[in-house]
Amino acid sequence: MENFEPVIVAFVCNWCTYTAADLAGTSRLSYPKNVRLIRVMCTGMVDPQYVIKALLEGADGVLVSGCHPGDCHYINGNYKARRRIKLLKEILPQFGFEPERLRLTWIGASDGIQFAEIMRELVTELKELGPSQAKLKMVV
């Protein structure tokens, strides 16, 4: 698995983490191309179903990232997201998905540097963990 390049699906909220990713881009900060950003209006709209779909389709990691507590543009979407991530973390490990494959972070709109750092860290971690079981098996 020397050349293993993990695929990461990241659901990022429009107002904070997506803006941070944009800032990283305009600041010419580089971050690994393993990350597929999916812009959502708020982390509060990420149904657990989206996370499951990404994992079953073979994503090696899923990131949900939005505004810091108190900063959500819809007031409390990120608190709801946190509960859903907690829920998923109770369920997914039963089926062999390592807890590290699902991450939740808060990255504010001006945190371009932090965004790039977290992406790098995530990729390093997932490289160590290796490919997801769902990628290797035919899941029906």
Binding site: P69, G70, N76, Y79, K80, R82, R83, I85, K86, K89, R103, L104, T105, W106, I118, E121, L122, E125
Partner: peptide
């Protein structure tokens, strides 16, 4: 429901 101060352990890398 949710609380503002809960489940901190699921946040972060």
């Amino acid at each position: 429901v949710f609380k503002e101060d809960e489940f901190q352990e699921v946040v972060g890398l």
